[in-house]
Design a protein around this nucleic acid. Structure first.
Length: 581
DNA sequence: GCCGTTTTCGGCCCGACTGTTTTCAGTCG
């Protein structure tokens, strides 16, 4: 039996949580399954292997019961409890709970009392006004169900928006509101502030002397198609391209509480509040209530919120309940996360020699203008598969061309490299002799994505063991919101990279950000040198490193953890080829 | 179901809105 990926194991426990919820289990038991699922999904190591080694309970939120169920899943391909519950609750019930206002309790009532177990039956029953015969449901509920079905909700969850687009929209809204006379302060919160891979909506928070006036102003913002009041000091709207926007406004004295609350993540906030309760404090968006005095502390800034809870202010990128609260309480947060300005070079970019839009010279000049001290030109190799391949002879010519540009342009080291395809057997696309002539070699997978996990892992481990591959590019092949990573045991790759001195890239293309935050953190912890690269296909996308830096920050990386923050003289000897004596 | 510098049992965040109620359950973020 092929091994279960972390994603697959996590999905099994999410489903089990849904099923237990329909079964009427206490909410904390359901949450326990969802917690475990999240923990498994995010684990930087193979959870199947962990389980076989008897170590799965090392994951937070995984105890004896979930260990047993995981082992059953690995051995038999299914979890017995899930089988039993599936027999009792048709899959359509879980689908029904995707509709707004229709949760597990109501889905269960509709099933028990009216036998409804699909969206189609739900629609028919609503049209026939039969839903109102269930106690607690009325005509409004029927109307809402029909509207939601009409709007196509329930078909599929709304797509999430990649960070750059969401951030761009958010900044426009923020800036427009800042121009309003009532505004004292306007900031982005939520996933865009945490620089997540993608977000489902935009959260904007503000302070104003007259909160209601500013909340009402959301409807006037250019990018907003429509907005309506959502309480006295709040508004909810939608952009012209369909993104949901939530605005909350308070008086300046409690802005810190509001910003902290709406920045999240939900997990971070839950963990923060649980910790607070143990100290007799209750945290909400309005303040911190002290049991002992009955007083509520309101904070104008976020640092005061964290300070009252006995911890340092936590950078938003770290607020994912991944150990940041304990670190903040113990003074163990990273002193200073890596910043865009720390980068001194970019080691992955393309030119017209393959599928880029600009020449070597144009890329070099653009890099110089960004203040870089070095760049590597890394065009695709011969089996790239998109027709823009660089043959060995063409690469030899490219070596000369890059050397010529390098000799001509002052102030920047222009290096000749390649992004060689890693063939299915793990070998690169050019002969060793040719690779040895280059300054820098990135090895990436661009073909044969469908291999099994064992083969794909062996392929990338072999690439790490190759003497002339300096760095692995976009190691998991994921495209955010588009395609999952190929089957790969990332911890094996990280192990091999650490052992061989192969660097690993955080590819900054906004739909890649690969390695992701969790894996990049694990790679750093394993002693792997991380490189943040643009993978630019034109001068205009060199600034994409911003998104790679965002991922590096979410991975807790400091300047010291990112190799291309070093000047070339210090970076060059770290390359595998330079270590070969 | 998980978890523990107050606990191996008894807890497990906080607030708001909605629609249906006659005091509140369910849902959502």
């Amino acid at each position: 039996m092929p091994d279960f990926s972390n994603m697959a194991i996590a999905a099994a426990f999410d489903e089990l949580g849904d099923l237990y919820e329909l079964d009427g289990a206490v909410v904390h038991r359901v949450l326990a399954y969802r917690n475990a699922a999240r923990s498994i999904r995010e684990a930087p190591v193979s959870v199947a292997e962990l389980a076989r080694q008897g170590r799965i309970t090392e994951l937070p939120g995984v105890g004896r019961t979930i260990e047993e169920k995981t082992l059953a899943l690995l051995e038999t391909g299914t979890i017995p409890a899930a089988e039993k519950l599936r027999a009792r609750f048709p899959a359509g019930l879980i689908e029904m709970t995707r509709l707004p206002g229709l949760g597990p309790k109501r889905a269960r009532m509709l099933y028990d009392e009216l036998g409804i177990d699909s969206l189609d039956e739900l629609r028919e029953a609503a049209q026939a006004q039969r839903l109102r015969t269930v106690r607690g449901l009325g005509p409004k509920f029927e109307r809402n169900v029909l509207d939601a079905l009409e709007a196509g909700l329930g078909e599929a969850p709304a797509p999430r928006v990649l960070l750059p687009r969401a951030l761009g929209l958010g900044e426009q809204i923020r800036d427009a509101l800042r121009a309003h006379p009532a505004a004292v302060r306007v900031e982005l919160a939520g996933g865009v502030r945490r620089l997540s891979d993608s977000v489902k909506d935009l959260d904007v928070v503000a302070a104003a002397e007259d909160p209601g006036a500013l909340a009402a102003a959301l409807a006037e913002v250019d990018v907003i198609e429509s907005a309506s009041s959502a309480g006295p000091n709040a508004a909810r709207g939608r952009t012209h391209n369909g993104m949901a926007v939530d605005l909350r406004v308070v008086e300046p004295g409690q802005f810190g509480n509001l910003w902290q609350h709406f920045t999240g993540s939900a997990r971070h906030n839950v963990a923060l509040r649980e910790l607070a309760v143990r100290r007799g404090l209750h945290v909400s968006e309005y303040g911190i209530l002290d049991d002992a005095t009955g007083e509520t502390l309101r904070c104008a800034d976020e640092a005061a919120v964290y300070e009252r809870l006995g911890m340092a202010w936590i950078p938003p990128e770290l607020r994912e309940d991944r150990g940041e609260l304990q670190a903040a309480a113990e003074g163990r947060l990273p002193q200073r996360l890596v910043e865009l300005e720390d980068l001194r070079g970019d080691l992955h970019m393309h030119t017209t020699a393959s599928d880029g839009r600009n020449s070597i010279e144009q890329m070099a000049q653009a890099a110089l203008a960004r203040g870089y001290e070095y760049v590597a030109i890394t065009d695709h190799s011969a089996t790239h598969g998109f027709g823009n391949h660089v043959t060995a002879d063409q690469l030899r010519a490219q070596i000369e061309a890059v050397r010529e540009v390098n000799a001509r342009i002052d102030g920047i080291e222009v290096l000749i490299g390649t992004e060689t395809n890693i063939l299915p057997d793990g070998s690169p696309d050019y002969d060793d002799d040719l690779l040895a002539e280059l300054d820098w070699v990135v090895g990436s997978v661009h073909t044969a994505f469908g291999m099994g996990e064992a083969e794909m892992t062996a392929r990338l481990v072999a690439a790490c063991e190759h003497p002339w591959i300096d760095c692995i590019g976009h190691p998991t092949g994921r495209k955010i919101e588009q395609r999952p990573p190929y089957a790969l045991n990332v911890d094996r790759l990280v192990e091999a990279a650490a052992r061989t001195g192969t660097m690993i890239e955080i590819n900054s293309a906004p739909d890649r950000r690969d390695l992701n935050d969790v894996h990049a953190r694990a790679a750093r912890d394993a002693g792997v040198r991380i490189v943040v690269s643009s993978d630019a296909h034109g001068a205009g996308t060199l600034p994409n490193v911003r998104w790679g830096i965002a991922t590096a920050r979410r991975a807790w990386l400091t300047r010291e953890d990112v190799a291309n923050t070093l000047p070339w003289a210090q970076f060059a000897p770290l390359r595998k080829r330079a270590c070969r004596g």
